[in-house]
Nucleic acid binder design. Structure first.
Lengths: 344, 344
DNA sequence: ATCGGCATCCAAAGCGCTTTGAAAATGATT
DNA sequence: AATCATTTTCAAAGCGCTTTGGATGCCGAT
């Protein structure tokens, strides 16, 4: 069923039917009702492509998912973020189109999206420091919002981010207050902006307590369980092991716990752990009492909100840029406790 | 830059330019080269919507992501599956469009997709037994492939699935051979087809060994870490605890391990665990030596292959239906060992 | 009666592409 | 030189919608 058929069926012109359906005032209310009813009955919905062609809007938003050729890694927060954003999109009549692309071809993917007019705007995921995508998007004039921020970019842009620095600063202080002096950092991939900011918070807290950051107990990698395990094990095996770990993701933290328990130590008593928790739906931090003490911020909620911001920008491209900084909550769980005596 | 501009720039008709770009034979090779070069230089790419309208094909494939209203849960395998499928799509010039929808509105979402002509076909995720989506899709005539199968559907359809039954049958036999008599099952949500099939394999193996399945040590739920933990703990607390667990996902298995170690037991010695492993990129089963003995099947590879099947069906809707059954490999890791003496 | 204003509807153009059917240019054949 | 087949190009229609710029009819006001 298309417009032409529907309107001839109703004995009306396509114009009138189209207007009736799109809520224009110049159509009799009685007529509008008739049209709406017929559309309903015949399950009519305007063809997306035709509508898009006529209006010049795709009513779709793009997400470019860079696939690191080295790591073949999908960001585990991706599903929840998409779920959050997807909610907002449906509510506003937008489709979501994903493009999976090798990270080396990413720029080309954006250019492609732009010239094919497939979407009205894009979300930039996982910004690195000095991320080149941002200036590219500015240049080709595709509306966008960044999930996170990119240090070292001159021109301003819209973003939504967790306050990673303050989160890790507070977490480090929390450990320091418990008497921990030697705190290992198990962080995300070097170059990722969030990892940089978390490290900055960590180092700032240490320095404020007169402790020099020790590269021997700081690691940066793709945040897998195995990476958490290896890092923690290696650090614990040294002569001067950390009494606490600050970890950048739950999955990593699970690996850290494995390493701790494998050595016959108990987490929360012998070794403390604080992790960042993205509040992923399939990886809740325990039940009523959190397993891990964590800096918590829902990535799903971030998706929801970020999508709103992007839609706002699309509707009003020359409007003010929007910056939103979410504070993570520090939730105390069972994985932290006072530093053991002998280590103090 | 659009076709009209490009062709007037070249002093050619739109017809010729279009044909040159789309590889039609009735155009001089010299001309084709000129056109290709100009297109390249001006970064020309045909407008997706216009092309779609003209050809009647969207060159896009839909994934409807049902969001369970109760659980607010995103399937953790989703990211990796999408990554795999996305690879195939890019290679074939397809876009991927996601629709996040509350599970109660799912049927409406498919109807909507269909009448709006947004995509050429869809992937059905997470089939339940007697899944109603399948007949709906047949009825509305939207090409589709199911990731998994749905027991109890009369009309045939294309699918790609892991042999869940045989995987869990083999895993159960493996445990039985090690002397385990009391094996707990920690399975996915009741009603999900894969969970049904895994249980069938488990029960068949038990019965073949003259053991009656005991509902007291069988659980079905959304597969989270916490669910794994709770289930294992409860079972271990009983007077007659299992000596082994068969678990439906790695994330769940991490919870099981937590419960085991919390009781001061050692996994692989005191209690054995076998889990299904979807080979998620961020949750590898240990490094060189697997942590868990596991039935392993890459969900990413499944995505790649399933996308191929769907594209084939779209290109040839009346062609033969395709069924592909992947066997999971049983990988022996450190989480299994002979049943402890006293329990035998 | 005539007019202006308003409510209601319509025909047709246009969005950017593909594709049909025909025309022009070229070359081979007589 | 005329004819035909072949290659190469083109004008225009059509995909399904929105939107512009009228028409049409009806009303009360003049």
């Amino acid at each position: 069923m298309n417009l032409k058929e529907l309107s001839s069926l109703l004995g009306l012109s396509q114009t009138t039917v189209s207007r009736a359906l799109n809520g224009y005032p110049e159509v009799n209310e009685e007529t509008r009702r008739r049209v709406a009813l017929a559309a309903e009955q015949h399950n009519y919905r305007p063809n997306t492509r035709a509508k898009g062609l006529a209006t010049g809007r795709a009513m779709a938003i793009g997400h470019v998912i860079p696939m690191s050729t080295k790591h073949e890694m999908v960001n585990p927060i991706f599903g929840d973020f998409i779920a959050g954003a997807g909610e907002t999109y449906s509510r506003n009549g937008y489709d979501m189109v994903l493009t999976v692309v090798e990270d080396v071809n990413e720029a080309q993917a954006y250019r492609n999206i732009r010239s094919r007019h497939t979407v009205d705007g894009v979300v930039v995921h996982g910004p690195k420091m000095q991320d080149s995508r941002i200036s590219l998007l500015h240049q080709i004039g595709l509306p966008f919002v960044v999930h996170g921020r990119a240090s070292g970019i001159a021109k301003d842009y819209s973003w939504l981010d967790v306050n990673n620095k303050s989160a890790f600063l507070r977490a480090t202080n929390f450990l320091l207050d418990l008497g921990h002096q030697r705190i290992g950092l198990i962080n995300g991939l070097e170059g990722m902006d969030f990892a940089y900011r978390r490290r900055a918070g960590y180092e700032e807290a240490l320095k404020a307590h007169g402790i020099a950051p020790d590269p021997a107990i700081m690691r940066s990698e793709e945040m897998t369980e195995v990476f958490g395990y290896r890092s923690a094990r290696e650090m614990l095996e040294t002569g001067n092991p950390p009494t606490a770990f600050l970890v950048s993701s739950m999955i990593c933290a699970l690996g850290v716990r494995r390493a701790i328990e494998e050595r016959g130590l108990r987490m929360g008593r012998d070794v403390s752990v604080i992790t960042h928790d993205d509040a992923l739906s399939y990886l809740q931090n325990g039940g009523d009492v959190p397993i891990f003490t964590a800096t918590r911020s829902s990535v799903r909620e971030a998706g929801r909100r970020l999508a709103e911001i992007l839609i706002e920008r699309i509707n009003n491209p020359d409007g003010p840029l929007i910056h939103e900084l979410l504070e993570a909550e520090l939730m105390v769980g069972q994985s932290t406790g006072p530093a053991p005596r002998e280590a103090q």
